[in-house]
Amino acid sequence: MAKLKGWREIPIGGAIVEAGNAVEYKTGGWRAFRPVFGQAQCIHCFQCWLFCPDSSILVDAENEKMVGFDLEHCKGCGICASVCPVNAKVIRQAGEQLSRDDPRLCIRMIEEGKAK
């Protein structure tokens, strides 16, 4: 952990004057649920990348592929799983409640500390 600065060393008014320094703040430890990427199901539509509030969707820009999650910053909010069109189209039995870690999902949410 970086040494904390004294009151004379920080910008006044609580301002952040370096753009893009949120990357230095590792928020992965806040996570209760971890997203798991189902590569086989993914259609690389980039909806998760578009919606992720923490810029934690890792992509291969050259080949236009979604490749996984930046777990150092992902807070586990699950928005990626909610907006995933593949998740929405998983066929289920009448009345079947789909669990968040169902293996048919493209983005599954696994409780931290539990096995996949």
């Binding site: 904390l4 600065k5 004294g6 009151w7 920080i10 910008p11 006044i12 008014g13 609580g14 301002a15 952040i16 004057v17 753009a19």
Partner: peptide
Amino acid sequence: RSLLDVDSPMTYGALHFYDYYYESKRQ
């Protein structure tokens, strides 16, 4: 400084926890 200075982008109103809130108040 100014929020409209696009050459030096900055943030006002960021969260300060127990690690920096007091330093801000000390100022």
